[in-house]
């Protein structure tokens, strides 16, 4: 399985109903070893941080076996709007 930014974005969009996803390959030579994601989804509403991150981890369980490092930020659409306006 080849892990690409597009693949991760697609999966998070489909499975978590994300309305916005930023994916960045943070490995030094863009070798898909580490990624940083920002996920905006209404699924996160009312859920603490740990639960949000678990949702993302679950969604990418297969990919995370191959990925060396993974950073994530999880926002509700409301939080995302707030952050954008700041």
């Amino acid at each position: 399985m080849e892990i690409t930014c597009d693949h991760i974005r697609e999966k998070l969009t489909q499975k978590l109903g994300a309305v916005h996803v930023d994916v960045e390959d943070t490995s030094s030579n863009r070798c898909a070893a580490s990624f940083k994601v920002l996920v905006v989804s209404s699924e996160f509403e009312g859920k603490p941080l740990l639960q949000r991150h678990r949702l993302v981890n679950m969604c990418l369980a297969e990919e995370l076996k191959e990925i060396h490092a993974f950073e994530q930020k999880t926002l509700t659409p409301e939080q995302w709007e707030k952050q954008k306006s700041q």
Partner: peptide
């Protein structure tokens, strides 16, 4: 109790 990883601790 599990708190989380680096991202979570940083945000906390």
């Amino acid at each position: 109790e599990f708190v989380g990883g680096c991202d979570i601790l940083l945000q906390m």
